[in-house]
Design a protein around this nucleic acid. Sequence first.
DNA 1: AATATTGTTCGCAAATGTACGAACAATATT
DNA 2: AATATTGTTCGTACATTTGCGAACAATATT
Lengths: 107, 107
Amino acid sequence: MRSTEYTDQQEQIARIAKAMGHPARMRILNFLAAQDSCFFGDINEVLPIAKATVSQHLKELKDAGLIQGEIEGPKVRYCINRENWELASRLFRSFFKELKEKPTCCE
Amino acid sequence: MRSTEYTDQQEQIARIAKAMGHPARMRILNFLAAQDSCFFGDINEVLPIAKATVSQHLKELKDAGLIQGEIEGPKVRYCINRENWELASRLFRSFFKELKEKPTCCE
DNA sequence: AATATTGTTCGCAAATGTACGAACAATATT
DNA sequence: AATATTGTTCGTACATTTGCGAACAATATT
Protein backbone atom coordinates (compact mmCIF):
# COMPACT_ATOMS: atom_id res chain seq x y z
CA MET A 1 0.00 0.00 0.00
CA ARG A 2 2.89 2.29 0.88
CA SER A 3 0.90 5.31 1.97
CA THR A 4 2.81 8.53 2.13
CA GLU A 5 1.35 9.74 5.38
CA TYR A 6 1.35 8.37 8.86
CA THR A 7 -1.80 8.28 10.92
CA ASP A 8 -2.53 11.01 13.44
CA GLN A 9 -2.21 8.43 16.18
CA GLN A 10 1.23 7.48 15.00
CA GLU A 11 2.36 11.08 14.66
CA GLN A 12 0.91 12.03 17.99
CA ILE A 13 2.36 9.24 20.06
CA ALA A 14 5.70 9.56 18.28
CA ARG A 15 5.80 13.22 19.16
CA ILE A 16 5.18 12.58 22.83
CA ALA A 17 7.54 9.62 22.92
CA LYS A 18 10.23 11.71 21.30
CA ALA A 19 9.88 14.32 24.02
CA MET A 20 10.23 11.57 26.61
CA GLY A 21 13.22 10.13 24.79
CA HIS A 22 15.96 11.76 26.83
CA PRO A 23 16.86 10.94 30.44
CA ALA A 24 17.13 14.61 31.40
CA ARG A 25 13.59 15.21 30.20
CA MET A 26 12.38 12.12 32.00
CA ARG A 27 13.94 13.41 35.18
CA ILE A 28 12.20 16.73 34.68
CA LEU A 29 8.87 14.99 34.23
CA ASN A 30 9.44 12.79 37.26
CA PHE A 31 10.39 15.80 39.30
CA LEU A 32 7.39 17.83 38.23
CA ALA A 33 5.06 14.93 38.83
CA ALA A 34 6.37 14.59 42.38
CA GLN A 35 6.82 18.20 43.42
CA ASP A 36 4.47 21.02 44.14
CA SER A 37 7.05 23.75 43.93
CA CYS A 38 8.52 23.71 40.49
CA PHE A 39 10.40 26.85 39.63
CA PHE A 40 13.00 26.71 36.95
CA GLY A 41 15.69 26.97 39.59
CA ASP A 42 14.43 23.88 41.38
CA ILE A 43 14.47 21.88 38.19
CA ASN A 44 17.86 23.20 37.22
CA GLU A 45 19.22 22.10 40.59
CA VAL A 46 18.41 18.45 40.10
CA LEU A 47 19.93 18.22 36.65
CA PRO A 48 23.63 17.75 35.89
CA ILE A 49 23.60 20.11 32.92
CA ALA A 50 23.86 23.83 32.26
CA LYS A 51 20.81 26.01 32.70
CA ALA A 52 20.75 26.91 29.02
CA THR A 53 20.37 23.23 28.23
CA VAL A 54 17.73 22.76 30.89
CA SER A 55 15.79 25.63 29.38
CA GLN A 56 15.98 23.94 26.00
CA HIS A 57 14.68 20.66 27.36
CA LEU A 58 11.83 22.47 29.07
CA LYS A 59 10.93 24.09 25.80
CA GLU A 60 10.76 20.72 24.08
CA LEU A 61 8.53 19.31 26.78
CA LYS A 62 6.33 22.37 26.54
CA ASP A 63 6.13 22.13 22.74
CA ALA A 64 5.12 18.50 23.09
CA GLY A 65 2.38 19.65 25.44
CA LEU A 66 3.51 17.66 28.45
CA ILE A 67 4.26 20.65 30.63
CA GLN A 68 3.38 24.30 30.88
CA GLY A 69 5.13 27.30 32.37
CA GLU A 70 4.03 30.63 33.64
CA ILE A 71 5.98 33.65 34.74
CA GLU A 72 5.71 34.49 38.41
CA GLY A 73 7.66 37.56 39.35
CA PRO A 74 11.20 37.07 38.17
CA LYS A 75 10.77 33.31 38.35
CA VAL A 76 9.04 30.84 36.09
CA ARG A 77 6.83 28.15 37.46
CA TYR A 78 6.59 24.91 35.52
CA CYS A 79 3.88 22.30 35.88
CA ILE A 80 2.70 19.12 34.29
CA ASN A 81 -0.04 19.82 31.77
CA ARG A 82 -2.62 17.56 33.31
CA GLU A 83 -4.95 17.46 30.35
CA ASN A 84 -2.29 16.37 27.91
CA TRP A 85 -0.75 14.10 30.49
CA GLU A 86 -4.05 12.24 30.59
CA LEU A 87 -4.19 12.17 26.84
CA ALA A 88 -0.68 10.77 26.64
CA SER A 89 -1.49 8.22 29.28
CA ARG A 90 -4.47 7.00 27.28
CA LEU A 91 -2.50 6.93 24.04
CA PHE A 92 0.25 4.77 25.46
CA ARG A 93 -2.15 2.55 27.31
CA SER A 94 -4.20 1.76 24.24
CA PHE A 95 -1.08 1.35 22.16
CA PHE A 96 0.39 -1.28 24.43
CA LYS A 97 -2.99 -2.90 24.83
CA GLU A 98 -3.13 -3.68 21.12
CA LEU A 99 -0.97 -6.73 21.46
CA LYS A 100 -2.79 -8.18 24.43
CA GLU A 101 -5.74 -9.02 22.26
CA LYS A 102 -3.64 -11.28 20.08
CA PRO A 103 -2.82 -14.72 21.47
CA THR A 104 0.55 -15.30 19.82
CA CYS A 105 2.53 -13.80 17.01
CA CYS A 106 4.84 -15.17 14.36
CA GLU A 107 4.49 -18.88 14.87
CA MET B 1 21.64 17.82 44.71
CA ARG B 2 22.60 17.87 41.04
CA SER B 3 23.50 14.21 40.70
CA THR B 4 25.55 13.29 37.70
CA GLU B 5 23.65 10.17 36.85
CA TYR B 6 20.08 9.48 35.91
CA THR B 7 18.15 6.65 37.47
CA ASP B 8 17.83 3.31 35.70
CA GLN B 9 14.11 3.96 35.39
CA GLN B 10 14.75 7.25 33.65
CA GLU B 11 17.37 5.79 31.33
CA GLN B 12 15.24 2.78 30.54
CA ILE B 13 12.02 4.56 29.74
CA ALA B 14 13.89 7.23 27.79
CA ARG B 15 15.50 4.55 25.69
CA ILE B 16 12.19 2.94 24.85
CA ALA B 17 10.48 6.27 24.29
CA LYS B 18 13.24 7.33 21.96
CA ALA B 19 12.72 4.20 19.89
CA MET B 20 9.02 5.03 19.71
CA GLY B 21 9.78 8.63 18.84
CA HIS B 22 9.44 8.37 15.09
CA PRO B 23 6.21 7.86 13.15
CA ALA B 24 7.77 5.25 10.89
CA ARG B 25 8.78 3.18 13.87
CA MET B 26 5.35 3.60 15.39
CA ARG B 27 3.82 2.33 12.19
CA ILE B 28 6.14 -0.65 12.27
CA LEU B 29 5.12 -1.43 15.84
CA ASN B 30 1.45 -1.01 15.03
CA PHE B 31 1.83 -3.26 12.03
CA LEU B 32 3.68 -5.95 13.93
CA ALA B 33 1.19 -5.82 16.76
CA ALA B 34 -1.66 -6.37 14.31
CA GLN B 35 -0.15 -8.88 11.90
CA ASP B 36 0.88 -12.47 12.18
CA SER B 37 3.01 -12.55 9.08
CA CYS B 38 5.74 -10.05 9.46
CA PHE B 39 8.54 -10.48 6.96
CA PHE B 40 10.75 -7.55 6.21
CA GLY B 41 9.10 -7.21 2.83
CA ASP B 42 5.67 -6.84 4.39
CA ILE B 43 6.87 -4.11 6.66
CA ASN B 44 8.75 -2.40 3.88
CA GLU B 45 5.58 -2.35 1.82
CA VAL B 46 3.58 -0.31 4.30
CA LEU B 47 6.23 2.35 4.75
CA PRO B 48 6.85 5.31 2.45
CA ILE B 49 10.63 5.11 2.73
CA ALA B 50 13.50 3.19 1.14
CA LYS B 51 14.25 -0.30 2.36
CA ALA B 52 17.65 0.73 3.63
CA THR B 53 15.93 3.19 5.92
CA VAL B 54 13.34 0.64 6.99
CA SER B 55 16.14 -1.73 7.88
CA GLN B 56 17.72 0.99 9.99
CA HIS B 57 14.49 1.66 11.86
CA LEU B 58 14.06 -2.05 12.50
CA LYS B 59 17.54 -2.19 13.93
CA GLU B 60 16.74 0.61 16.34
CA LEU B 61 13.58 -1.08 17.50
CA LYS B 62 15.51 -4.30 17.95
CA ASP B 63 18.27 -2.57 19.90
CA ALA B 64 15.65 -1.03 22.14
CA GLY B 65 14.31 -4.53 22.70
CA LEU B 66 10.83 -3.89 21.39
CA ILE B 67 11.06 -6.32 18.49
CA GLN B 68 13.09 -9.31 17.44
CA GLY B 69 13.97 -10.78 14.08
CA GLU B 70 15.01 -14.16 12.86
CA ILE B 71 16.24 -15.36 9.52
CA GLU B 72 13.91 -17.70 7.71
CA GLY B 73 15.31 -18.86 4.44
CA PRO B 74 16.22 -15.80 2.46
CA LYS B 75 13.65 -13.77 4.36
CA VAL B 76 13.69 -12.26 7.82
CA ARG B 77 10.73 -12.55 10.11
CA TYR B 78 10.16 -9.76 12.60
CA CYS B 79 8.00 -9.95 15.71
CA ILE B 80 7.14 -7.95 18.76
CA ASN B 81 9.30 -8.99 21.68
CA ARG B 82 6.46 -9.83 24.02
CA GLU B 83 8.50 -9.89 27.20
CA ASN B 84 9.95 -6.44 26.69
CA TRP B 85 6.65 -5.18 25.37
CA GLU B 86 5.13 -6.09 28.70
CA LEU B 87 7.99 -4.45 30.52
CA ALA B 88 7.58 -1.28 28.49
CA SER B 89 3.86 -1.33 29.09
CA ARG B 90 4.41 -1.49 32.84
CA LEU B 91 7.06 1.20 32.77
CA PHE B 92 4.84 3.67 30.97
CA ARG B 93 1.81 2.79 33.00
CA SER B 94 3.52 3.38 36.32
CA PHE B 95 5.16 6.51 35.00
CA PHE B 96 1.88 8.10 34.01
CA LYS B 97 0.27 6.88 37.19
CA GLU B 98 2.64 8.94 39.30
CA LEU B 99 0.66 12.08 38.83
CA LYS B 100 -2.70 10.56 39.58
CA GLU B 101 -1.78 10.22 43.22
CA LYS B 102 -1.34 13.95 43.58
CA PRO B 103 -4.51 16.04 43.86
CA THR B 104 -3.30 19.24 42.22
CA CYS B 105 -0.02 20.76 41.25
CA CYS B 106 1.38 24.28 41.26
CA GLU B 107 -1.42 26.21 42.87
C1' DA C 1 26.69 -22.72 -12.39
C1' DA C 2 24.08 -18.64 -13.43
C1' DT C 3 20.39 -15.75 -11.93
C1' DA C 4 16.77 -13.93 -8.94
C1' DT C 5 15.07 -12.67 -4.48
C1' DT C 6 15.63 -10.81 0.04
C1' DG C 7 17.68 -7.79 3.44
C1' DT C 8 21.74 -5.71 5.45
C1' DT C 9 25.64 -2.76 5.32
C1' DC C 10 28.35 1.12 3.38
C1' DG C 11 29.17 5.76 2.20
C1' DC C 12 27.41 9.93 1.87
C1' DA C 13 24.42 14.32 2.51
C1' DA C 14 21.27 17.00 5.04
C1' DA C 15 18.77 17.86 9.10
C1' DT C 16 18.13 17.66 13.95
C1' DG C 17 19.65 17.25 18.76
C1' DT C 18 22.63 18.20 22.70
C1' DA C 19 25.54 21.03 25.21
C1' DC C 20 27.93 25.16 26.70
C1' DG C 21 29.13 30.13 27.90
C1' DA C 22 27.98 34.75 26.93
C1' DA C 23 24.75 38.11 26.23
C1' DC C 24 20.35 39.61 27.13
C1' DA C 25 15.60 40.94 29.22
C1' DA C 26 12.64 41.32 33.13
C1' DT C 27 11.64 41.73 37.68
C1' DA C 28 13.43 42.52 42.78
C1' DT C 29 16.27 44.49 45.98
C1' DT C 30 19.24 47.94 47.87
C1' DA D 1 19.29 54.65 39.96
C1' DA D 2 22.39 50.84 40.60
C1' DT D 3 22.73 46.02 41.46
C1' DA D 4 21.26 41.26 42.02
C1' DT D 5 18.44 37.42 40.75
C1' DT D 6 16.15 34.60 37.45
C1' DG D 7 15.57 32.46 32.96
C1' DT D 8 15.64 32.80 27.98
C1' DT D 9 17.93 33.46 23.71
C1' DC D 10 22.08 33.59 20.74
C1' DG D 11 25.99 31.72 18.61
C1' DT D 12 28.81 27.93 18.27
C1' DA D 13 30.63 23.15 18.25
C1' DC D 14 29.99 18.49 17.99
C1' DA D 15 27.20 14.18 17.79
C1' DT D 16 23.33 11.73 16.29
C1' DT D 17 19.48 10.82 13.23
C1' DT D 18 17.29 10.27 8.95
C1' DG D 19 17.34 9.30 4.33
C1' DC D 20 18.98 7.46 -0.07
C1' DG D 21 21.26 4.51 -3.74
C1' DA D 22 24.80 1.27 -4.50
C1' DA D 23 27.18 -2.57 -3.16
C1' DC D 24 27.09 -6.68 -0.80
C1' DA D 25 25.94 -11.45 1.35
C1' DA D 26 22.91 -15.31 1.70
C1' DT D 27 19.58 -18.28 0.28
C1' DA D 28 16.33 -19.96 -3.80
C1' DT D 29 15.39 -20.92 -8.31
C1' DT D 30 16.37 -22.10 -12.97
